[in-house]
Design a protein around this nucleic acid. Structure first.
Lengths: 343, 343
DNA sequence: TTGAAAGCGCTAACAA
DNA sequence: TTGTTAGCGCTTTCAA
């Protein structure tokens, strides 16, 4: 079928080991034979079969990227960064969307392992993810990096964002504007993203001697619809907050819709904050106050970590933590507190 | 290192071929040995090395997906669909972002080929893409599907969307509202998306005996920023249009910003239409009139096509064409025509 | 400086 | 019903 190293060897009148040597620049080869071999390689349009190489070397030059959902802008950006950086190092990336479904994740992981993938990046693992734990227990040497989350009791390389800091900043900003009652619109209950953010919010609120009513903390999925639903619930409640802190920009935009649907104006009647700073955050009206993470850098760092452990296994694990940055825009302001909503 | 078929065979006291047989359900195996072998498989936690299988069978159960940019919502949705459907058929997908850079694409393609990938889906190929042509010329049997675009003079399976129809519908809708002067904000000059849409627009305009001024057709990249820039240029020109047709929703949202920045209200002073119906399209104010494609179906169909050709090569090529659907929302209306802008 | 040959882990004739 | 063996295309000792 396709041309192999044998074809090249025969045509060049040398042994396959010689061809292999010139192809890989390994061992001694006379300039003369090198030229001859390269000539035949060009002539025959020979391309190395990486499968055979992989079987030999036990390196596929492929990494797996496991994310909840590529449709979420944050993961799209991240994936882009990982793919680019991987490519720069000569690695391809196999994409896996789990929807936070552990069974799906398990099946992906075993599939990836069977394919002898060289390493895996887990984005936003949930704190009780059993698959990562199992994988690490079974083979502590296998290159894994956890990005933007950490499974309890599992020691791997990590790239993290101090999300609690971002949430703290946002909350403090709202408090300084004069807000005293808050609504919190989160995603999955056991996503680290939700937990971290809530922590930061609580710290800021406690510092200011204010209280966060438990009923004002709502969980859901990460879609815009969920933001709308949660916000409606908050806005129609007795403990109606003057500010809503959403766990992602998309959720925040869902909150915008809720506010509009019942005639509240942002930020006069209601301040809203997001998280992620997706492209649309500046396009909505008013522009969204949010927090931005160095997503590209996260991806780059994660790839650096896997690739370096793949190429030279190391005895220690490392962790890099990034700080998010608050971006104040038009969706937050001093509360006016003069509105009424029919409950 | 890891446990192989030999380990299983030895422990079970059978030959490797027997193990292979029970693993693949091929040929006769007595119930007794089957059970014994399976027992050992479980006990040893044996997992098949797909690399070896692939080397033998010349099938890697992996397909490549080549897209311009995962960061673009349309491709994120598409990728999601392709990945899901691929997975359903037992295929992994390797993601490649080309940024429409032909060299990058070429390098990806040769990389994928070296890895003995089973097939490739090219999303939105540009009409003069040299790589697809070269690939087909070299190996007409290799499973390829072009999605949402077609390279001239290349015969492969195709999944298309009649974008010109969507653009036609949008334009006609605007004309019926009373618009007579249009601005067109496109993406790359030689992307099929741009060409198709322009075609549809022209047909509708000609049918109505109107004219589209050449200076009102602007090209750029596909980012929000480009929409803003192009729209500003249009709105400050002498031939200021009353409606802008953008090639994507993101570009349209850029146009929103331009309109707002110079104090025009939508749709009274300016109607705007998009393309794609991304999630945010309904969240912007006013909600965006746009056109929606069955993205998921596109991905599913493309995967069906590659997978079926991978599994059973066929002598013919096929093409599936989908119709887009117009979604009318608040961003289009009757022109009021009483505004002035300092030029 | 080059070649022969032994694998990498598996499938698939072919024999028994 | 099971075992033996020859590859798949390559890298890498070890000899020459």
């Amino acid at each position: 079928m396709s041309v192999t190293i044998y074809d090249v060897a025969k045509k060049a009148g040398v042994a396959i080991s010689t061809v292999s040597r010139v192809l890989n620049n390994t061992g001694y080869v006379s300039e003369k034979t090198r030229k001859r071999v390269m000539g035949v390689v060009e002539e025959l349009n020979y391309e190395k079969n990486m499968l055979a190489v992989a079987l030999m070397k036990k390196q596929t030059k492929t990494i797996g990227l496991i994310i909840p959902d590529i449709t979420n802008h944050f993961y799209a950006d991240l994936t882009r960064a990982v793919e680019d950086e991987g490519n720069r190092h000569g690695f391809n990336v196999i994409l896996c969307n789990t929807d936070n479904d552990m069974e799906k994740e398990a099946s992906y992981v075993s599939f990836l392992l069977q394919k002898n993938i060289d390493g895996i990046i887990f984005a936003s693992p949930k704190k009780d993810d059993p698959n990562i734990k199992a994988l690490c227990d079974k083979n502590p040497q296998f290159p894994i990096v956890q990005l933007g989350g950490e499974v309890e009791g599992v020691n791997t390389d990590k790239v993290l964002v101090e999300n609690s800091q971002g949430a703290y900043d946002l909350t403090k900003h709202l408090i300084e504007l004069g807000h005293e009652s808050f609504g919190v619109v989160l995603g999955h209950r056991n996503s680290l993203a939700s937990k971290d953010r809530l922590d930061g919010i609580n710290i800021a609120i406690n510092e200011a001697n204010l209280r966060l009513v438990k009923q004002n903390i709502l969980y859901g999925d990460f879609k815009m619809q969920d933001g709308l639903k949660s916000a409606l619930q908050l806005l129609k409640s007795k403990n109606r907050p003057t500010a809503i802190i959403a766990a992602t920009d998309l959720l925040a935009i869902g909150c915008y819709q809720a506010a509009k649907s019942i005639g509240l104006s942002i930020p006069d009647d209601l301040s809203i904050t997001g998280f992620d700073d997706i492209e649309i955050a500046q396009a909505v009206e008013p522009a969204l106050t949010t927090v931005t993470s160095p997503i590209e850098q996260l991806g780059v760092r994660a790839v650096e970590m896997v690739v370096s452990t793949i190429e030279k296994p190391k005895a220690y694990k490392e962790k890099t933590v990034y700080q998010p940055t608050m971006v104040i825009r038009g969706s937050t302001g001093t509360p006016v507190n003069n509105y009424t909503v029919s409950s």
